[in-house]
């Protein structure tokens, strides 16, 4: 579905991704983990063609054009939902209007239909009582969840989540994890989830990719991922108290 073919991304002298190749298959939940600044957000932006690779190609399905400014781009993007790391809400619009925006701009639904869909999406992220609030009056976690509602409201084919659970309390985090899985099962959404939370990655992912130093250190299914002997993976897991057998507990 999403294929990276020897992608290199440079910003000036700084090489962020070096010859990265992998493929996300249709209908899977693909988690990307890795230390800060290794190009996880850049990878997502490459997928949706907000950035274009310095060399190599990023293909979506059969569409391998690495950058274009044509109408095709907007057709391509309409297949995506994207949750930004910074939520990226429009400050002068209420939560409701922010979530309704993609529906109003992309579809020909009536106001009543839009209202139903928006309230439904807000309910899924637990914000049905904050519809009339403005983004500046929301907490960071609530902004994130509004961004999530905006990403899922069009029920797109592919969803890209940039740290959906960062800054959320554990209970809400699990709720968001369940939502990602539910969308994946109900609509067959292909999901790419960038996260720092190994517990969440291990419980929702079909496969986990670890980026390190601009390269893919490993791609494994969760059960193999925790047994991985790659040093970068081990230190990443150890830091979150996850051992080869599962979660580390005091005294064993």
């Amino acid at each position: 579905m999403i294929r990276f073919e020897e992608v290199t991304k440079r910003f000036g002298q700084k090489v962020v991704l070096k010859n990265v190749s992998y493929e996300v298959s249709e209908g899977e939940i693909f988690c990307i983990v890795g230390p800060s600044g290794t190009g996880k957000s850049v990878s997502l932006k490459l997928m949706i063609k907000l950035l274009s690779p310095t060399s190599g190609r990023v293909c979506i399905g059969d569409d391998c054009v690495s950058s274009s400014w044509s109408k095709d781009l907007s057709v391509l993007r309409s297949r995506f939902g994207y949750l930004f790391q910074s939520a990226a809400l429009l400050a002068w619009m209420s939560v409701y209007e922010n979530v309704a925006l993609p529906l109003r701009e992309r579809t020909k639904l009536t106001d009543a239909e839009i209202r139903d869909k928006v309230m439904d999406a807000l309910e899924k992220v637990g914000l049905e009582n904050d519809a009339e609030t403005y983004p500046a009056d929301l907490s960071g976690g609530m902004q994130k969840r509004t961004g999530l509602a905006r990403a899922i409201v069009t029920e797109p084919e592919i969803l890209l989540y940039d740290e959906p659970t960062s800054g959320l309390d554990p209970v809400t985090s699990r709720m968001i994890d369940d939502l990602i899985v539910e969308l994946n099962e109900r609509l067959g959404t292909t999901s790419v989830v960038v996260t720092h939370d190994m517990h969440s990655a291990l419980s929702i992912a079909d496969r986990i990719a670890m980026l390190h130093g601009g390269r893919v250190a490993t791609i494994e299914a969760p059960q193999n991922f925790i047994k991985s002997e790659v040093p970068e993976v081990r230190s990443f897991l150890d830091a979150q108290y996850i051992t080869r057998k599962g979660v580390w507990e005091k005294g064993n």
């Binding site: 907000l50 907007s74 993007r77 994207y82 930004f84 790391q85 910074s86 990226a88």
Partner: peptide, 16 residues
């Protein structure tokens, strides 16, 4: 501010 907050990018992704 909208540009550095990715809000412009968000608009483009929504094909706006």
């Amino acid at each position: 501010t909208m540009t550095v907050n990715d809000e412009i990018a968000a608009l483009e992704i929504m094909s706006i």
